[in-house]
């Protein structure tokens, strides 16, 4: 937890990041940046999915629709916040010549997305839709 607070402080203090170690090969930093952007796109896709569930599935019951949309939006926001945190941690690890940080997040995200997909299949099969 204390480590996390330190990481969050690094988000806002670029000069403190530069104080650590020495500047890595710029190509490594660019690769780290592209990974960050890929995660941002994942977050945007999840947020877009949240909008899409609410807008394009009007036949779902209110509770199911809003619950599903909220889950996607929450995971999307978490994904974006985690993206910047992971980027800062990787950048710092490269400056210090340490191993890159390991993360459980990709596994959790894929399990979460799988769960949402299975939930959608169940909802459709059981016909939890209003009307028609």
């Amino acid at each position: 937890m204390i480590d996390f607070v330190k990481d969050v402080r690094l988000w806002f203090a670029p000069s403190r990041l530069k104080d650590e170690g020495d500047t890595p090969d710029y190509r490594f930093s660019l690769a780290n940046e592209r990974t960050f952007l890929a995660w941002i796109r994942t977050a945007l896709a999840l947020v877009g999915g949240g909008f899409a569930v609410d807008q394009f599935l009007p036949d779902l019951r209110w509770g199911v629709r809003v619950g599903m949309a909220f889950a996607l939006l929450a995971v999307g926001a978490a994904c974006a916040l985690r993206a910047v945190n992971h980027w800062v941690r990787c950048e710092r690890a490269m400056r210090r010549h340490e191993d890159l940080p390991l993360s459980r997040f990709p596994v959790l995200l894929s399990l979460g997305v799988g769960l949402v997909a299975v939930a959608m299949v169940v909802v459709v099969l059981l016909g939890w839709t209003s009307g028609r």
């Binding site: 690094l10 203090a13 670029p14 500047t23 940046e33 926001a77 910047v84 950048e91």
Partner: peptide, 16 residues
Amino acid sequence: RVLAPRSALAVVGCTV
């Protein structure tokens, strides 16, 4: 140069 943390935060802020 390396991406400025401020830009990264701005992008994340927009997404959130």
